[in-house]
């Protein structure tokens, strides 16, 4: 994984794990790789991974079991909420960027529809 040096690394690690959880690569109840293993896989500092995981435990996306490691929550509403949160975040970013180009809300929706349609056309 390549990191963007302008964004805090712990934040990027969290995002990476969020996506894996939402995509089901880390399913509810799955054990998250050990801190050091994650650090080696992502080529980052152990402390940074630790910070990302602790925050995810606080957010209750991960459940920490003493002596056994971290597990993805089995509470599917929690995961649904996480997914919704990510969607809102991305839509927000998109909306603010496009809005800055002086487009009306209707035009933004229209542009998005057109884009989706052409994408679907390109896939066929």
């Amino acid at each position: 994984m390549q990191f963007d040096d302008k964004v805090p690394i712990y934040y990027q690690i969290k995002n990476y794990l969020y996506h894996r959880i939402i995509a089901g690569q880390l399913a509810p109840g799955d054990k998250v790789p050990a801190v050091r293993q994650l650090a080696v896989d992502l080529t980052v500092n152990v402390n940074t991974v630790q910070r990302a995981l602790s925050e995810m435990v606080t957010e209750q996306v991960l459940i920490s079991k003493r002596g056994r490691g971290n597990f993805v929550t089995e509470d599917v509403t929690q995961i649904a909420a996480l997914k919704h949160h990510l969607i809102v975040t991305y839509v927000q970013q998109f909306y603010h960027q496009v809005h800055g180009l002086e487009l009306s809300d209707d035009e933004i929706v229209q542009e998005l529809r057109t884009y989706i349609a052409t994408q679907k056309g390109a896939d066929k």
Partner: peptide, 28 residues
């Protein structure tokens, strides 16, 4: 990788360099 694998949690490490991009994710 060997630094990440073998550094004990309580041990401290100072790495000098004049070029930082490749080791940036490693640094607290």
């Amino acid at each position: 990788s060997s630094i990440i694998k073998w550094k004990r949690p309580e041990a401290t490490m100072i790495i000098s360099d004049h070029y930082v991009t490749e080791i940036a994710p490693l640094l607290d």
